[in-house]
């Protein structure tokens, strides 16, 4: 897997795929996509990078241990779920900002929730794969 073409390609692929995964995440509410798919795409992006450059390199790019993404993601999801409590609404009720944001579109608690899912999926998948490659 140390071919030059693969290395060069994957170093460009990583940011592209990550960007794509965020795009997929954000448009999920209106077009096919969403947190699950986005998270999986991002994981694949990192996986491809680690194939080309080795695990150490990829880990140094991510900086933090992917395991930490799981609690952060869960916190996002739970936060979005209990946010309606503060305005006296039932659990998980969708709350929305009145006006759409530029580039992103409508932002609401559902999007925060989806971001949580996205982070959990990346965290879980990368944890699984890294702990395997680590010991192979």
């Amino acid at each position: 897997m140390k071919s030059l073409i693969f290395k060069t390609a994957s170093s460009y692929l990583l940011p592209l795929l990550l960007l794509f995964s965020i795009f997929i995440l954000l448009r999920g509410h209106y077009l096919p996509g969403g947190g699950f798919v986005g998270g999986l795409m991002a994981s694949i992006a990192f996986l491809i990078h680690s194939f080309a450059f080795g695990l150490k390199e990829t880990q140094s790019i991510i900086k933090i241990n992917p395991g930490y993404l799981m609690p952060i993601g869960l916190a996002f999801a739970v936060g979005a779920a209990i946010a309606p409590f503060f305005v006296d609404a039932p659990l998980l009720k969708g709350l929305w900002f009145e006006e759409p944001f530029r580039f992103i579109g409508m932002v609401g608690s559902a999007l925060i929730f989806d971001i949580g899912v996205y982070l959990v999926v990346i965290g879980a998948t990368l944890t699984i794969i890294f702990s395997i490659t680590d010991t192979v």
Partner: peptide, 18 residues
């Protein structure tokens, strides 16, 4: 109600968010 067009995603994050 849920301000989403992709029904599958709306089910996942809103209707059946729990």
């Amino acid at each position: 109600l849920a301000k989403g067009r992709n029904v599958v995603n709306v089910i996942l994050v809103d209707y059946r968010g729990f």
